Computed example of a mutant assay.
Amino acid sequence: MRVEIVALVVSPIHAFEGRPADGPRADPGPVSRDEVAVRAGLGLVGDRYFNRPAHRQAALTVFDASVLPAGADPVAARRNIVLRGFRVDTLARTREVPEGAVFSLDSGAGAVRFQAHRPAHPCAWMDVTLGSGAFRALRGRGGVRCVPLDDGVLRVGPADLEVRTSPR
């Protein structure tokens, strides 16, 4: 299936700690990338969750751009891989697929497989970054936490997405 990677986000620090009313910490640099390096089992090179044991099943988040409020910057959602053209939340584990779906993305440098795990629930910071009401509007549509199964490269632009039934 043809999709579009509309944003790739690598955040070296967690800028959203504390109370949303206090505002975020300043990021040390830009978070949007045209290309990212993916490492199997580890995540996106340079991201704050890369190779963190506590995030082994949540090394990165894939998000559906179509759920954003009109005119919202997809980078503001601070999800690592933002796609257009596929309902990403359907990949998360369910009763029918308790381990979550295995899917691949190929943006021209070869397919990279991912194991989807749990849904990525939005937080109150969404109202700060995307606008008032975003937190409530994104409940159940906050993306899916994944772990990469392959090393590879992803680029912003057209990509092929394939959902598989097993990691092999």
Rank of each mutant, 00 (worst) to 15 (best):
residue 1 M to V: 13
residue 3 V to H: 13
residue 3 V to L: 08
residue 4 E to D: 15
residue 4 E to P: 10
residue 6 V to Y: 10
residue 10 V to R: 11
residue 12 P to Q: 03
residue 12 P to D: 10
residue 16 F to V: 00
residue 16 F to Q: 12
residue 17 E to I: 01
residue 18 G to L: 04
residue 18 G to F: 01
residue 18 G to C: 00
residue 18 G to T: 00
residue 20 P to K: 07
residue 20 P to F: 00
residue 24 P to D: 11
residue 25 R to M: 09
residue 25 R to C: 09
residue 30 P to W: 06
residue 30 P to T: 13
residue 33 R to C: 13
residue 34 D to T: 12
residue 35 E to A: 14
residue 39 R to A: 13
residue 39 R to K: 14
residue 40 A to C: 14
residue 43 G to I: 02
residue 43 G to W: 05
residue 43 G to K: 02
residue 44 L to S: 08
residue 44 L to W: 08
residue 46 G to H: 03
residue 46 G to I: 01
residue 48 R to I: 01
residue 48 R to H: 12
residue 49 Y to I: 01
residue 51 N to D: 15
residue 56 R to D: 10
residue 56 R to V: 06
residue 56 R to W: 06
residue 57 Q to A: 13
residue 58 A to V: 02
residue 60 L to H: 03
residue 60 L to C: 09
residue 62 V to T: 07
residue 63 F to V: 02
residue 66 S to M: 05
residue 68 L to K: 07
residue 68 L to E: 09
residue 69 P to M: 10
residue 69 P to C: 10
residue 69 P to R: 12
residue 70 A to V: 00
residue 71 G to K: 05
residue 74 P to M: 14
residue 76 A to Y: 08
residue 77 A to F: 06
residue 78 R to E: 14
residue 80 N to A: 09
residue 80 N to F: 04
residue 81 I to N: 06
residue 83 L to E: 12
residue 84 R to V: 04
residue 85 G to A: 11
residue 88 V to F: 11
residue 89 D to P: 00
residue 91 L to S: 03
residue 93 R to Y: 03
residue 94 T to G: 11
residue 96 E to R: 15
residue 96 E to H: 14
residue 97 V to C: 14
residue 100 G to M: 07
residue 104 S to W: 08
residue 104 S to G: 15
residue 105 L to M: 07
residue 109 A to E: 14
residue 110 G to A: 06
residue 116 A to V: 02
residue 122 P to K: 07
residue 123 C to D: 14
residue 124 A to M: 03
residue 126 M to K: 03
residue 127 D to N: 13
residue 129 T to V: 07
residue 130 L to E: 11
residue 133 G to K: 07
residue 133 G to H: 12
residue 133 G to R: 08
residue 134 A to T: 04
residue 135 F to I: 01
residue 136 R to Y: 11
residue 139 R to G: 09
residue 141 R to T: 06
residue 143 G to A: 09
residue 146 C to H: 07
residue 147 V to T: 15
residue 148 P to W: 01
residue 149 L to C: 05
residue 150 D to K: 08
residue 150 D to Y: 04
residue 154 L to N: 04
residue 154 L to A: 05
residue 156 V to C: 15
residue 160 D to R: 09
residue 160 D to M: 03
residue 162 E to S: 09
residue 165 T to M: 06
residue 166 S to I: 02
residue 166 S to H: 10
residue 167 P to Y: 01
residue 168 R to K: 11
